[in-house]
Every structure is written in C-alpha cells, then in structure tokens.
C-alpha cells in the first residue's frame, strides 16, 4: 500500500505520517516513509510518502502507484496527481491556504476538483478544521484527518489508539484521541 500525505509546512503532516507508519509496523508490515525537512518547512509545500507491504524497497512512491492521497489543503492535492493509481482514493481537507501569488492578488486560487476528477472520481471531502475547532483544538486537524484515513485501512481502532498513546505525551493524549475518534466518525461523501 502507498499512502501519500500532502499539505503545507506546519500542518502536522510529519506527525500524522509517523503515526500511520508506527501503526503499520505494529500491524506486521515492513514500512518506509520519506519526506523533506529543513527549508521546505517554512510555509512551503510538504509531502510525505508512506509505503507498507511485506518488503518495501524504495522510500519514494513511484508514479501511478499511490492508493490513497490524504491532502491537508485543497490546492496541494492537485500537485501530486502523477502519483495516483487509476481509481485511487483522495481524501481532501476542505481548507484553503493562499499561496504567496494569491495573497498578493496576482493569481486566483484555482478550482482543483475538476483537475482531480481527470484522474479519479473517488474524492472524499472532510472539514477537518470545523471538527477540530468545535473540539477547541484548532491545531488538531492532523489527528482528525488521520482518524478519517484510518477508516479506509485494515488495522482496528485499538491499534491506532495504542500508537497515539505511545507517540504523544500524557498531557495531549486524550485531546488527540478525541480528535481521532471524531475523524473516524466523519460521514464521508
């Protein structure tokens, strides 16, 4: 399985992809994950490749091989279409963060849904920000989206919770498990 997470630096993509990797290792898979740190963190585009199977060679997902794209920001979804398998599933956080050219008014924020439809019809929108804000944890969007992603994957709820407990310190555990559960309950359309 190849899962790609996409978004903007600071959205918590690295932590979410770490958690997915931990879950899949404990589930018994070989796992590799790759992303870029450093300069790209400063508000730039971020993508994280997570691959798991009996034996993973490349840490990068080859083109046309991604099973699920979890996107934290609408525009970012459209950057990685070359990775998608035919009929790949695309989960999109309905959230727009304007890039510099849009901020300065020189370009419009593009409508990306028609572009994605050229590759796949299996598009699922999730309002992660609304859910996270309702819980009073606006920074917890990543864990909400991870919850939604988890409903597409084999491991059961208990293993996910075990990994969240393992990876987060005590103070923020219950808040994040609540966010994860809310994400699992999203009625995907």
């Amino acid at each position: 399985m190849n899962v790609l997470m996409a978004g903007v630096g600071g959205q918590g993509i690295i932590l979410a992809s770490d958690m997915l990797s931990e879950v899949m290792m404990r589930y018994g898979f070989d796992v590799k994950k790759s992303e870029i740190h450093g300069m790209a963190q400063r508000g730039g585009s971020v993508m994280s490749h997570v691959r798991y199977s009996g034996n993973v060679a490349s840490p990068l997902i080859p083109f046309r091989s991604c099973d699920i794209l979890l996107s934290f920001e609408e525009l970012e979804t459209a950057r990685y279409l070359a990775y998608l398998k035919e009929d790949a599933r695309v989960i999109i956080n309905s959230y727009r963060l304007s890039p510099p050219s849009v901020i300065s008014g020189s370009r419009d924020y593009p409508d990306i849904i028609p572009i994605i439809r050229e590759r796949t019809d299996r598009i699922y929108m999730v309002d992660g920000h609304a859910i996270a804000e309702e819980m009073g944890n606006p920074r917890g969007v990543n864990i909400v989206l991870l919850g939604t992603l988890s409903t597409f994957l084999e491991p059961e709820e208990g293993l996910w919770v075990e990994c969240i407990n393992f990876m987060l310190n005590e103070k923020i555990r219950s808040m994040n498990i609540e966010g994860f559960m809310k994400g699992r309950q999203v009625n995907i359309q």
């Binding site: 903007v8 730039g44 046309r64 525009l75 459209a78 070359a82 510099p100 849009v102 572009i115």
Partner: peptide
C-alpha cells in the same frame, strides 16, 4: 517513457520567512 500525465501550472508555494 511512460505516457505523460497532464500537468497544471498551479500557483507555487515556495518556503518563506515565518
């Protein structure tokens, strides 16, 4: 070469100062 996948000129998101 694999069949090219259509690419769009999306607005870039270069890193910036915080």
């Amino acid at each position: 070469d694999a069949d090219p996948i259509r690419e769009y000129a999306l607005p870039g998101r270069p890193p910036s100062m915080c």
